[in-house]
Design a protein around this nucleic acid. Structure first.
Length: 532
RNA sequence: GUCCGGUUCGUCUAGGGGUUAGGACACCGCCCUUUCACGGCGGCAACACGGGUUCAAAUCCCGUACCGGAUACCA
């Protein structure tokens, strides 16, 4: 039997981190078993469902690359079938018409339900509905007379529902604890449990993998399967993802941190986030943390799923820990260790969005004529595809998100970058001599190197033509430092701040080389930083 | 209230009768270094509690506590 699983979100908001994980687990299970991963939009709550939300959920799934099989099923399209099923159950006397007038919920719905349940405690049997055993004749007559009614499932008086959950094990529940659930509202609207069972049957779902909050629904749904004479699928309930206080994780309370789009927009790599999500409530029982998608598919199994809820750990008022540390670490880990050519396609849109992109960065668009790249490849023309790749590779080591390429890495791609006040203070203002030394160093570079066509009145006649490479730069900077009787760090750090605007980054020699002679010289002469 | 589920470092987790209870993140320290949020080394830090079973319990059983979920003519 081919495995068929489904992810069935209700479109009442964006793709929540918990739903995303449910989708991921379904996806992994389907792919690991050679089964099908189906998508069903449970849009039967007309008042709350929106198309925008459906789109947002699909966007989220697309971003995570959880591609589904077959056409998307919209639950609302099958309402007639659901009604028909309810009527069939009625005809089979597995369900009955309840003529009790509908009571509208007011105020806090959840609290009201709990209150009502408490009040009913011990007072009455959950199934002692006066209409439960109404004769067919009278029921038909009242219905024919136009009296409104809901259709309720007739839960047997004796016995219990039981199923073997793939995660939680044997689950049993006395019929006594289950109310005769409404299948069809008095306005003819089919309700969730009926709709889900009908659709799961229709879609030939073999495994229902969903949140643990559905555990009691499962008992109700099994009752419907039994009434219908259909063998229920296998159920696997997932532990829930909680807020740091172990409470419910919600948009109301926690905002954007729970939305998948937040991570996409914050410069997360889908692969990294997927990896993080996979480890929230599941483990392969080993010490590995970084898994490629194919490894996840290969290793995923229902027995690796935990029974206890997991905390999504973030700190609302701490910008550095605004989301789970491990998610951030994992993203950084992906950025700095994945093959650079795989990273490039993600950096490009980021630079484009920040208007830092140049077409020359694209592979294959280089113009050979403009290249004065040394034969050994050490000094690359700034702006070439090779330069771009090398630069991305250099600066990614200390980056956490794709956003960093356009923010903290801005100075590599544009002349228009900001100076960090603390860095200026620490590395420039503190050493006033640098104000003259650095432009002097620029002249020195210009005289010593010839990587680029620099036209300047300061170029000496008969200069030695050396490539602007780390090794050569080091010699020059060291000599310069000695002449000035200062420490290498003073020059290097001053140059770093002037050239990149910040106090941190890769080796300064590689920064010089990466920026190239022309830009290095220009920036060393710049006095802008001193004015801030 | 009732039903159901859960409980190993701050967080994610490994381990499921005998372990110095392992790893990762975070945090702290040292090293590397011209700087650094890279890297290297190290440190802090956990079996909820009480009973039982057993030669031996984090691990099995029972209870308690706490946390969570559910309880709807919502999904």
């Amino acid at each position: 039997m081919t495995v068929r699983v489904r992810f069935a979100p209700s479109p009442t908001g964006y793709l929540h981190i918990g739903s995303a994980r449910t989708a991921l687990f379904n996806y992994l299970y389907a792919r690991s078993t050679g089964g099908k991963f189906l998508l069903r939009i449970e849009d039967t709550d007309i008042a709350r469902s929106t198309e925008e939300s459906t789109r947002s959920i699909l966007d989220g799934l697309a971003w995570l690359e959880l591609d589904h099989d077959e056409d998307i099923v919209f639950q609302s399209d099958s309402a007639d079938k659901h009604r028909e099923t309810a009527r069939k159950l009625l005809a089979d006397r597995k369900a009955y018409r309840d003529f009790t007038p509908k009571v509208e919920a007011t105020g806090d719905v959840k609290a009201g339900i709990a209150e009502r349940a408490r009040a009913a405690q011990g007072v009455k049997n959950m199934r002692d509905n006066p209409y439960r055993d109404l004769s067919t004749g009278e029921s038909d007559a009242r219905a024919a007379a136009g009296e409104p009614f809901a259709i309720r499932l007739k839960v047997p008086m004796e016995g219990r529902t039981a199923f073997d959950d793939a995660v939680y094990g044997i689950q049993e529940r006395d019929y006594d604890d289950t109310e005769d659930l409404v299948l069809l509202r008095s306005d003819g609207h089919p309700l969730y449990n009926l709709a889900v069972v009908c659709d799961d049957i229709e879609m030939q779902i073999t495994h229902v993998i969903r949140g643990q909050d559905h555990l009691t629904n499962t008992h109700k749904q099994i009752l419907i399967y039994e009434a219908l004479g259909v063998v229920p699928p296998i159920f696997a309930h997932l532990p829930l993802i909680m807020a740091p206080n172990k409470g419910k994780l919600s948009k109301r309370k926690h905002g954007e941190v729970v939305s998948m789009t937040t991570y996409r927009d914050a410069g997360f790599l889908a692969a990294a986030f997927r990896n993080f999500l996979a480890l929230l409530g599941w483990s392969a029982g080993e010490e590995q943390e970084i898994y490629t998608l194919s490894e996840l598919i290969e290793k995923f199994s229902l027995d690796g799923i935990h029974r206890s809820n997991a905390v999504f750990n973030f700190h609302e008022n701490d910008p550095r820990h605004w989301t789970d540390d491990k998610a951030q670490w994992m993203n950084a880990e992906y950025i700095r260790t994945m093959p650079v050519e795989q990273l490039l396609p993600f950096v490009r849109p980021e630079l484009k969005a920040a208007k830092l992109w140049r077409d020359e960065y694209e592979d294959g668009t280089r113009t050979p004529s403009s290249a004065n790249v040394a034969e050994d490849g050490v000094s690359l023309e700034v702006g070439s595809a090779e330069w771009y790749e090398k630069t991305v590779d250099l600066i990614r080591a200390r980056f956490f998100t794709l956003k960093d390429f356009s923010s903290r890495g801005r100075s590599y791609f544009s002349e228009d970058y900001d100076f960090d006040a603390a860095a200026v203070e620490k590395n420039l203002t503190k050493f006033p001599d640098l104000k003259t030394w650095l432009p002097e160093l620029a002249n020195r570079f210009e005289n010593e190197f010839s990587e680029e066509r620099v036209s300047s009145p300061n170029v000496r006649e008969g200069f030695t033509s050396k490539p602007f490479t780390e090794e050569n730069i080091e010699t020059v900077v060291k000599a310069f430092t000695e002449e000035k009787g200062t420490k290498l760090g003073v020059i290097m750090n001053g140059a770093r701040t002037l050239l990149t605007g910040v106090a941190v980054g890769p080796s300064m020699l590689s920064v010089f080389e990466t920026l190239g002679l022309k830009r290095t010289v220009m920036r060393l002469r710049s006095q802008v930083a001193w004015k801030t």
